[in-house]
Amino acid sequence: MSEPLFELRGVGKTFGSGTVALEGLDFAVGRHAFVSLLGPSGCGKSTVLRLIAGLLRPSRGRLIWHRRIARGDIGFVFQEPTLMPWASVFDNVRLPLKLQGRPRREVREEVERALSMVGLEDFAGAYPRELSGGMKMRVSIARALVTRPELLLMDEPFAALDEITRFKLNNELLNLWARESWTVVFVTHSVYESVYLSERILVMASRPGRITGEIPIEVPYPRDEAFRLSSRYTAACRRVSDELRRAMGE
C-alpha cells in the first residue's frame, strides 16, 4: 500500500438508541487508492463513510489522519444526488466554494472545470428538475470535485441508476480518478461494481458492522468493457461473492 492517508484503529460506533452499528474496525487507506466497502444493506457502510467525513464521531477507537486535512479536502457523494432544487447546476456545483466565502466571479473557472469533468458544461443554467437521474448524479460528483479534494467518499452513488448509465458513470469515474489521483472510498452493495472499480475491497458483515475480509483486485488500470467480459473479472467476482456469502453467514 502507498503512503497511508488515514487509518481506523479499533473504531466502533454505538448510537443513542443503544444500537451497536460498528465494532472493531481496523483498516488503513493509502493515498490515491480506490477502496470499496462492500456489504449487505444495514451493515454500517454509510456509517463508516460518515465517520471518515467527520459527520459522526466514533464511540470507540480512533481515526488517524496521516496528512493535514482541511475543509474542502473531502468530497462526499451521497446515494441520492442531494442537490438544491432551487439552485441552478452552476450554483449547486459552486456551493462548497461559496461556503468558503469565495465570491462568484472568482470561482467561475473552478466551477466550469468541474462541470466539464463530468461533461455538463452546457447545462450550467439548468435546474435539477430539468435533468435526468444520471445527469443529477454527475452534478453531485462535480460538486464533490470542485474543491479539488484529496479524498472522495462515495455512498452508493450509482445504486439508483439504470445499468447502462451506471456502466457509463463507472468508466467516467475511473478515468477521472486515473487523471486526478484522489483517494476514493466507494460504498456499494454490488459485487460487480466493486470488482470493476476497486484496487481493494473490504467486505463487511452486519450486527454489528465489521470487516470480515479484504480482497485485492490485482488487475491493472485502465479497465474497460473488455475487462468486464474477461475471465479474470469473473474469477474476481466469484471470489468476492464467496467472501460476501461467508460474511452474511450463509
Binding site: 474542502g72 462526499f76 462548497p96 461559496k98
Partner: peptide, 19 residues
Amino acid sequence: NLRDLFELYGASRWQQLLH
C-alpha cells in the same frame, strides 16, 4: 443529506439558514 453536506464544508449557522 444537504445539512450533512453543509456541515462537511464547515457552513456557519447563518450560512445554513440563508442558503
